[in-house]
Amino acid sequence: MEIKARVTIRGAKIFKGNIDGKDMDSGKIFTDVDLKGETSWGVCTQELKCTNSAVVDGIKHIPFPFLAEIDILMESNGKVSTQLVTGIKPMRQEAAREKAAANG
């Protein structure tokens, strides 16, 4: 199943290289999530894995934090669920483009 979510991205990291003869290509983003519980409140940062470094590479030039719409692929084997970010669309850039287009 694929879903879209609007998130605040606080940071990102990529790795491309070889470990023990195995080629690796990964990316992660760090997003705000609300704390929930009787003894917790506020916001914390959660790590979300991306399908590869190319997903993250497109946002490295944007100042953090920023709002974005992300595409998430959710899968399960019946016991364990996984979430992978497959796309990131910065909201600030889209708003700036729309404003520029409206102003001609």
Rank of each mutant, 00 (worst) to 15 (best):
G21V: 14
L35S: 12
T39H: 14
S26D: 01
D25W: 01
G27C: 14
I29Y: 06
T51D: 04
I59Y: 05
C44R: 12
P63C: 01
D25P: 02
E75I: 02
I29L: 08
F66P: 06
T31V: 12
D34W: 02
D57M: 06
I70N: 05
F30T: 07
P65E: 05
P65M: 05
Q46R: 14
G58V: 06
A54T: 01
Q46D: 14
G78C: 01
T39Q: 15
E75Q: 04
L48R: 13
F64C: 02
W41C: 12
I72C: 04
K28S: 10
K36W: 12
E38W: 12
G21Q: 13
V56H: 11
I29T: 04
I72M: 03
L35G: 08
L35H: 10
I59G: 05
I29S: 09
S53F: 07
L73S: 02
L73T: 04
E47H: 12
I29K: 07
P63M: 05
G42H: 10
F64H: 03
G27P: 04
G78M: 04
K36P: 05
D20V: 15
F30R: 04
M24T: 12
L67K: 08
V56L: 11
E69I: 01
L67I: 04
I70G: 02
D34G: 03
L67Q: 10
E47T: 15
V56P: 09
T51A: 09
C44S: 13
N52E: 00
L48Y: 12
N77S: 08
E38S: 15
V55P: 06
V55S: 01
D71V: 07
E47W: 14
F64G: 02
M24L: 14
I70L: 07
D32H: 09
F66G: 06
T51R: 07
T45E: 11
E38T: 13
D32I: 06
E47Q: 15
T45Q: 13
E47N: 15
A54F: 00
P63G: 03
K49F: 14
W41Y: 15
E75R: 01
G37Q: 10
G21D: 11
E69P: 00
D71F: 02
E75D: 07
I29W: 08
S40F: 08
G37W: 04
N77A: 09
V33E: 09
E75P: 00
T39D: 12
F66E: 08
V43D: 08
N18R: 14
I70A: 04
D71Y: 01
N77E: 03
G21W: 09
C50V: 11
N18T: 15
N77C: 05
